[in-house]
Design a protein around this nucleic acid. Sequence first.
DNA 1: CGGCCTTTCAACTTTTCGGTTGAAAGCCAC
DNA 2: GTGGCTTTCAACCGAAAAGTTGAAAGGCCG
Lengths: 110, 110
Amino acid sequence: MTTEALSRVFAALADPTRRDMVARLAEGDATANQLAEPYQMTLQAVYKHLRVLEQAGLVTRPPGPQPRPVRLEVHVFDLMDNWIERHRRRAEQRYRRLDALLAEMSGDEA
Amino acid sequence: MTTEALSRVFAALADPTRRDMVARLAEGDATANQLAEPYQMTLQAVYKHLRVLEQAGLVTRPPGPQPRPVRLEVHVFDLMDNWIERHRRRAEQRYRRLDALLAEMSGDEA
DNA sequence: CGGCCTTTCAACTTTTCGGTTGAAAGCCAC
DNA sequence: GTGGCTTTCAACCGAAAAGTTGAAAGGCCG
């Protein structure tokens, strides 16, 4: 279900800590420890956040040697983009139609 | 704080009912009753959702005669767009740099 | 193998969220 | 001004979220 995926992505980004993690991962991969460093919260809490981001598809953790890197998966942004742009466009179209209608009416008046 | 505003917008859109409301409002204004019609939930619950959308700035309810219309405020989408695009761009830049580096290295090899 | 670092599991607490019920205002029209 | 819509307020409930502690695996290197 796309709608559940969308809910998970939006919910994941609704948390400022997770948003900060994503922002930092946009600059480059990082280990869980590096990610945790700026926050004063347990390492376990950071892993929990990572699991949320992972299940939202925003992040992967490629297998390999022990301190596994966390990698941002940008293509998930497209999901949000699509949703946002679709409705933005629809609403703006409505505005344009309304403007046109108003213009026509004032033209008739003149 | 912009970060709180962002949290509120993302959190508001993390709920499928609220997302559906926004989608329908993109087609045109509606009253609370009209909005509530498709869902089997109390009218009060709908008003609660509207309050969340309102506090996220996604929706306004212009004053006037009693069945007050709910109006979508598209410009709030820009907030999300900015955030998303900024980090998407940064990550994609990284990818490009990485590609260039790899190309350079394989060029050195040849 | 042993030990250390990384990662996960589990249980518990506190808040927040989505929803309900019930009641109270507000406002509009007749 | 009373009656019927719309809107809000308040208290409550169950479930989920964010964080903690404590413990257990997993994996890597000397």
